[in-house]
Each structure stands twice: as structure tokens, then as C-alpha cells.
Write a protein that binds this DNA or RNA. Structure first.
Lengths: 337, 337
DNA sequence: CTGTTAGCGCATTCAA
DNA sequence: TTGAATGCGCTAACAG
């Protein structure tokens, strides 16, 4: 009942040749006679021979698997990144082992441990919002497992990374709001751990400077991304004497919470208050009053570029060479709705 | 620079004992002297010994990996299912290899091939909407790789499956609409391939019968789940003389398209027309006019139950026994918003 | 209670 | 151009 999976040994026996010849024939080794090679390949196909991956992995000391650590899978943003990683991995005949940190540092640390034990060949990671040290990733160096950070990248030197620069789009976004006549633009920033490359804030500043507008520090508030915290933040903004008429929200999630809260407070969206946001979820097209614009960060491309970089590192490693740290920066785009 | 990973051989040498003794000691084999066992375990810890998974996989002829095939990862629904599968897999020290069929039959077939080549120990699948034959899954039987279908389950005998029954919730949903005074309830059904266990339709019928309402066949329309098709379907309903005042939508996606289209046609949601839907996306809480109710299908639980069933099958297999086909049916719940 | 041995499937080195 | 032999790390059958 169980179909027996053939091995090179059986092919060898049937053809009365040695296993090494079979192995070489199957790999198009140059020093194999055309006749034998053809014979072997023909029989292999007939017998439905398929190399035993577990054996190869064992022999090569590689798993042909890369670990992908994400904060979560719920956000479509990350699931698009997965597709980018998977497509690239597939092209390289690699598997992807996905794990969610659920934005918890200790889970992230455990995942790294698990992946190391499973001997993944390399790791791609978008860090959790609690991650304030990357010691657990640095530890992988000792095992010669390369790591590429992407999207959510820690602000430390000597790492490989791929991320999307938000600076120019942010300037553009704030200037768009100015152009629409908004005098006072608030900014709801995310947790500091995710803000280390504070490009949103820099862009916010630049836009104000370029347009000779003063910055009111009370227009800048912070959320830890929980709904409650976001509501507290927006509440702070709305209760100001001269409250902002437009808001730059850390991401679409924050934007949604902001919009909902503002509506609850009887504010008319896009009239009393406008929102610009980051991420560009497809879902926002279903909103009655969507953000006026979104900053697209190309998660699919970030994922595939990160995977490509990782394969470059793996390739170098197999040639016993070491590449310098590389930091790839993509450019975001402002999408006006 | 590269940290050398110790093996049992080295432990054995250091203690002047044999590798098999080390192996047994590490596995708490009963026939090992307490002293030696302690010694071994102590040294192993000191040396940071970690068993080489690739070697074990090779030796055992197992990958300790299960394949998970999903239509896509974008829908939060499926990402919750992933979490259910992963948590259960983790408890069993298994890895999960995830792939997306993107609702295409040929991709699904290729994925099955790939997973077989990678020698996954078992497969979990929620079929694509094009899947009209499960020959590619049946083929896995010959390799003794068990398959569990879940959520989107084909309507054929002799399979293992886990799904969520929608019948009672659908009756409840339609009766809720009746109770709210709706005389005419339309139904936008999905593609036939996903409708084989037509529980939505059955529930729709039952509710009408129970309440002695005739069924108007023109109130039942079909979408292939693309936006265009959904719009055509709702257009059909809205252009009827006696158009429905409430709609049962195949899922939240269809519900969103329906609501948006109705708004475009200047209908007041929840007044001129109400919607009930399946899936209960968190996102709908952000809508100004969400569906009046949703049928929750517990994707996380479906995923974990499916994984548990698969492990039961794997366990039986390792004992050379074969279990009868099992079909686990969960019950959906109507969530009124 | 412990050691010896064999072997999983494959790639590869060395020898012919 | 091909074959024989080796070993990757581990488990388990068999022997003591």
C-alpha cells in the first residue's frame, strides 16, 4: 500500500553501476559518459526517483530553510511581506519557517532559540515593538547564521537591513495637508522602540520648516498602538484650545482608531478633521471617510529584497567569504485617495 | 569565529564512554546508571549540546514538519487559522510549512508536489475555490502522507476533515432579519465549488419554511467573490420590483462590497437595506454601517482541531495502525453587532 | 547497565 | 570515465 520511494542505490543496482556514478549522472557531472548519464536519467524518471531531501540536508549540513519572524500575521501588511519572502525563497529552492512574536520580546527570543535549534540557514526578522536589544540576534552570529532585519529595523550599527524610507513621503504628506488649507497638523507617533529612525518626525519637522510654520509640541502625541492609548492620544489633541484640523497617524490602525474616535466626538471627518496615514491598507477603501492619503511602504518588495540579501549572504558564506554590512533603503510613496 | 556545535561523539570521548550510552542517557533511557546519566546530562549542558535536528530527521525518516495550504494569507480569517495550527504544532515539536494557493488549482497542485518532495509528514489544507478534484491530495495517500481538510472542505467521502457548520447560525440570522421586520431577504451565494455543503442555503430555506414565508428564487444570486461579480449580483437584487430589504452575504468581503455598492446607489444602510454576513472580521467594527450580525466560524479553533486530528493520524501511523475517516464539525455562532 | 556495530541516502575523495 | 570507500550525527538491534 505504501509506495516505496526509490533511492540512487536501487537505480545503481538496476543498471549495474555504482551509486556514485548515479549520483554524478543525476547532477550532470561533466566526467560522466553521455550514454550512462542518459540511461541513469531515463531510469530515474521512470522510477519516479526523487532525491531524499532529509538526506541531502543532513549531508550538506544545511536545512535549506530560512526563518521568518514577524510581529503578527493579522496585519495584511505582514502577510504581503511573507509573499515577498516566499516567492524569493521558492526561486532559490528554500523553505520558509514563519513565526509570530506577537510583539513580545520574550517570544521573539524563544523563537530565535527554536530556529537556531532547528538549524535554519538564515533569519529574516521584523522586530517586535518591545525589542530594545538585539543580543538574541547577535548570538546567531556565533553559529554563523546570518540575519537580515527588514521593515521594523533596530537602530544599531553592524546589521544587514532592508527598510522603507518614510522621510520624503512624510514631507509630501504634511505639505499636502498644508496645501489643503490646514494650519495645524497634529502627529500621533508610535512607541519609541519603533521610532528610532524617526523619519516620520523628521519629515514632519522639515515640512513645517520649509513652509515656515512653527511647531507646536503639544500637537505631537504618542500611542503604544493599543486602541486605548491611541484614544488617549487623540483625546489630548482634540481637547487643545487650538486643536489640529489634520492629523498624521502612525499607521492605518491608528488612523482607524482616530477616525472612529473623532466620529464619536461628532467631528466631521475630512471637514473638521482630516487624517493621513501609513501603510495603505486595501480595507480603507471601504471606509466612508478614509484618510486623505496614505504612505505606501511596499511590504512585498521589502520582503523579497530582504530575502535576496539573505541569499547573497548565504552564498558568500558557502564560499567562505564575508560581506560587509548592507543596508538597503527603499522609498515610500504617497498615495492620495 | 564560528562556534562549533558539539555532538554526542565528543561528549562520549570526553567521558570515555560510548556514543550509544550518551544517546541513551540524554533520552532518559531506563537502563542507564544514574551516575552516568547525570554525568552525561551535566556535561551536555555545559557544552551547550543540542541535538542535530537534520540528523534526527534523516535517521527517523521524518521531517517533523507539516504542510499547511491556504487560499491566501491576506484574509485575517486564515491568519487566525495559522495561529491555531502553529500553536498545536509547537506543542508537538513540529514545524509548519505554509503555502498559499492564491485560490488557483494549479498552484495548489504544485504546492502538494513540492510538499511531498520536501517529505512533510502530513498536510493540512483549506482548498482553493477552483478545486473541483482532490486527486492531487489522494495521491499523497500512496506516499502515506495523511491529509486533513479544514474550513473549506471538499464534499467527497473518505477524507478527514474539520469544518464549522453554518446551518443553525444561518437560520438564526435570517430569523433575526425577519424579527427586525424584514419581509424580503436576499441571499448572495458564493461560487458553487465552495458551496457544496450548501449549509447557508439550507439555513436560508429552513428559516423561510419555519416562518411560513415563500422563497423567491430571484432573491438568490451568485458571485464568484470578485468585486465585479458581487456588484453584478447585488445589482440584480436591487433592480427587482420588490427588492429585498435585507441581504445575507456569503462572507464579510461580499458584505463590504455590497454595502459600498448600496451606498453608491444612495441606499441608507440599516434602513433601506440591512446586511448579515459570515466571518466576523475585526475590521467591520470600524465601519459606519456594519452588518447587523456576523456568523463567527472560529478559524483558530478549526486550525488547532485540524492539527490535532493530523497528529492523531501521525501517531496511529507510527504504530502502523490506520484510523477510520473522521469528520469533526464545530458550530458557528451568530454575533449580533 | 554499557559497548559495538550497522545503517539511514547522499556527495565526495581517492583510487583505478 | 567509473567504482570503492568514507562519513555526516544519530538511533537501535544485538551482544556482552
Amino acid at each position: 500500500m505504501e509506495k516505496k520511494v526509490p533511492t540512487i542505490k536501487e537505480i545503481a543496482k538496476k543498471l549495474n553501476i555504482s551509486v556514485s556514478t548515479v549520483s554524478r549522472a543525476l547532477h550532470d557531472h561533466p566526467s560522466i559518459g553521455l550514454r550512462t548519464k542518459m540511461q541513469v536519467q531515463k531510469l530515474a524518471k521512470e522510477m519516479n526517483y526523487e532525491p531524499n531531501q532529509t538526506a541531502i540536508r543532513f549531508k550538506q549540513g544545511k536545512t535549506f530553510t530560512l526563518g521568518l519572524i514577524l510581529p503578527n500575521l493579522q496585519e495584511e501588511y505582514f502577510s504581503l511581506a511573507i509573499s515577498g519572502v516566499e516567492d524569493t525563497a521558492f526561486k532559490n529552492n528554500y523553505n520558509v519557517l514563519i513565526s509570530q512574536s506577537h510583539d513580545l520580546l520574550d517570544r521573539e527570543q524563544k523563537i530565535v532559540e527554536t530556529m537556531r535549534k532547528h538549524r535554519v540557514d538564515g533569519v529574516l526578522v521584523s522586530i517586535s515593538k518591545q525589542t530594545n536589544s538585539i543580543a538574541h540576534f547577535k548570538q546567531l552570529d556565533e553559529y554563523n547564521i546570518p540575519v537580515v532585519f527588514f521593515d521594523r529595523v533596530p537602530n544599531v550599527p553592524d546589521i544587514h537591513s532592508v527598510w522603507c524610507s518614510l522621510y520624503y513621503s512624510t514631507v509630501e504628506a504634511v505639505e499636502l495637508l498644508f496645501a489643503k488649507g490646514h494650519q495645524r497638523v497634529g502627529y500621533i507617533q508610535g512607541p519609541l522602540s519603533l521610532n528610532i529612525k524617526n523619519e516620520r518626525l523628521e519629515g514632519y519637522h522639515t515640512a513645517h520648516e520649509k513652509n515656515k510654520r512653527p511647531i507646536n509640541q503639544s500637537y505631537i502625541v504618542t500611542t503604544d498602538l493599543s486602541r486605548k492609548s491611541t484614544e488617549a492620544a487623540i483625546e489630548k489633541l482634540l481637547s487643545l484650545n487650538n486643536r489640529p484640523t489634520a492629523i498624521l497617524a502612525f499607521n492605518d490602525n491608528v488612523a482607524l482608531d482616530t477616525i472612529q474616535y473623532a466620529k464619536k466626538k461628532k467631528l466631521k471627518i475630512n471637514k473638521d478633521i482630516s487624517v493621513v496615514s501609513y501603510a495603505n491598507w486595501p480595507i480603507i477603501s471601504y471606509l466612508d471617510f478614509p484618510p486623505v492619503a496614505s504612505v505606501e511602504q511596499f511590504p512585498y518588495e521589502q520582503g523579497s529584497r530582504a530575502a535576496e540579501l539573505l541569499f547573497k549572504l548565504l552564498d558568500a558564506k558557502s564560499r567562505e567569504s564575508v560581506l560587509p554590512y548592507e543596508n538597503i533603503v527603499l522609498k515610500s510613496e504617497l498615495i492620495v485617495h
